[in-house]
Amino acid sequence: MFTPFEDLDAVLADLVATARDILGDTYVGAYLQGSFALGAGDVHSDCDFIVVTTAPPSGPVEAGLRALHDQIPTRRGHWNQCLEGSYADLASLRDVAGLGVPWLYCDNGHRELTWDTHCNTPHTRWILRHHGITMDGPPIATLVDEVPPEVLRDAMRAALPTLLDDLRTWAPFHVAWTQRYAVSTYCRLLYTLRTAEVTSKRGALEWALDHLDPKWRPLLTQVLEDRALGWDPTQPPRPGSLDATFEFAAYAAGLPAPASTTRGPRAGR
């Protein structure tokens, strides 16, 4: 069992077997990262994967992977619309020198693969190194080096000032899901800044309840409790929650940088 869901495990097993056949001698292994690797995946989660290869897919191999992912979301079943991940070549995955290299990427529920850096991030590498689930192949910790703490912190420092503007490029703020996503993402950034580790959205919200100004507890509790609502494009944010989110964003961006590492709860809460 890779996840708590038998039907998701069946989808993943088929993905791994088919990708392995397509990649042939360039196939190394297949792994879970993201919320399921952190022990926090639920029915509202994406299922984040990484397939490691000896070389970036090209030619007939790339065409085969594109055909596979064009077909998967047309299948019946919830989890066929929830796969998100990349095909990462071993050389650029190994250490942080490979950050910024585009990988062949499957966006959540999309049928067209793109070359993108979405999964090629310090936090993805950290999750893989410390919590990655091996579905097939050698242990993932043998393929990914440790991520230096300051690399993680620098990425969070760079993301904080522009997070809201970045969200507006793809997430509609008239939808309640976006309001919750914004708050939890700020909490994850702050958690990593303080701990040089990565945790789930729930873990970051619970950490924030314990470590941030108590004035934010109503907002943080609202986001935690509303997680069960999932994605509904017709559902507006709760009254007042969007203004509170914008105020929280300004608060988070204005917090002083940590002087030293203060370890929070282990990732995956």
Score class of each variant (00 low, 15 high):
residue 1 M to C: 13
residue 3 T to Q: 05
residue 9 D to F: 02
residue 11 V to N: 00
residue 11 V to P: 00
residue 11 V to R: 00
residue 13 A to F: 01
residue 13 A to S: 05
residue 14 D to R: 11
residue 14 D to E: 13
residue 15 L to E: 03
residue 15 L to T: 03
residue 20 R to Y: 12
residue 20 R to Q: 12
residue 21 D to C: 14
residue 23 L to T: 06
residue 24 G to A: 01
residue 24 G to L: 03
residue 24 G to C: 01
residue 27 Y to L: 02
residue 29 G to V: 02
residue 34 G to F: 03
residue 34 G to S: 06
residue 35 S to C: 09
residue 35 S to L: 08
residue 36 F to N: 07
residue 39 G to K: 01
residue 44 H to Y: 12
residue 44 H to N: 11
residue 45 S to M: 03
residue 45 S to A: 02
residue 48 D to H: 02
residue 51 V to G: 01
residue 51 V to I: 04
residue 53 T to V: 09
residue 54 T to W: 15
residue 55 A to H: 12
residue 56 P to R: 11
residue 58 S to F: 14
residue 61 V to Y: 12
residue 68 L to H: 01
residue 68 L to A: 03
residue 70 D to S: 12
residue 71 Q to T: 02
residue 72 I to C: 02
residue 73 P to W: 00
residue 74 T to Q: 06
residue 74 T to D: 00
residue 75 R to F: 00
residue 76 R to P: 15
residue 77 G to H: 00
residue 78 H to N: 12
residue 79 W to G: 00
residue 82 C to M: 14
residue 83 L to K: 00
residue 84 E to L: 08
residue 85 G to C: 05
residue 85 G to P: 01
residue 86 S to A: 06
residue 86 S to V: 01
residue 87 Y to C: 00
residue 88 A to R: 02
residue 89 D to L: 06
residue 92 S to E: 02
residue 92 S to I: 04
residue 94 R to G: 09
residue 96 V to C: 13
residue 100 G to W: 05
residue 100 G to S: 06
residue 102 P to S: 06
residue 104 L to S: 07
residue 105 Y to Q: 08
residue 105 Y to L: 08
residue 106 C to N: 10
residue 107 D to Y: 14
residue 107 D to S: 15
residue 109 G to R: 01
residue 111 R to P: 00
residue 112 E to I: 09
residue 113 L to E: 04
residue 114 T to Q: 12
residue 118 H to Q: 15
residue 123 H to F: 13
residue 124 T to F: 09
residue 125 R to D: 03
residue 129 R to S: 04
residue 132 G to N: 11
residue 132 G to Q: 11
residue 132 G to L: 10
residue 134 T to H: 06
residue 138 P to A: 02
residue 139 P to H: 09
residue 139 P to L: 07
residue 144 V to L: 07
residue 144 V to A: 03
residue 145 D to I: 07
residue 148 P to G: 03
residue 149 P to N: 07
residue 150 E to M: 13
residue 151 V to T: 09
residue 151 V to F: 09
residue 153 R to S: 14
residue 158 A to M: 14
residue 160 L to C: 11
residue 166 D to R: 14
residue 168 R to V: 15
residue 169 T to C: 14
residue 171 A to E: 10
residue 172 P to F: 07
residue 174 H to Q: 15
residue 182 A to D: 06
residue 185 T to D: 08
residue 188 R to Y: 09
residue 189 L to A: 05
residue 192 T to V: 10
residue 193 L to T: 02
residue 194 R to T: 15
residue 197 E to S: 15
residue 198 V to M: 02
residue 198 V to G: 02
residue 198 V to K: 04
residue 201 K to F: 04
residue 201 K to W: 05
residue 201 K to R: 07
residue 202 R to V: 07
residue 203 G to H: 04
residue 203 G to K: 04
residue 205 L to N: 01
residue 206 E to I: 14
residue 206 E to Q: 10
residue 208 A to H: 05
residue 209 L to E: 11
residue 213 D to K: 10
residue 214 P to Y: 09
residue 219 L to T: 07
residue 223 V to S: 08
residue 226 D to S: 11
residue 228 A to P: 11
residue 228 A to F: 14
residue 229 L to C: 08
residue 230 G to D: 00
residue 230 G to Y: 00
residue 231 W to G: 12
residue 234 T to E: 13
residue 236 P to E: 04
residue 247 E to M: 13
residue 249 A to T: 05
residue 253 A to V: 11
residue 253 A to P: 08
residue 258 P to D: 06
residue 260 S to D: 12
residue 263 R to S: 14
residue 266 R to M: 15
residue 267 A to W: 15
residue 268 G to K: 05
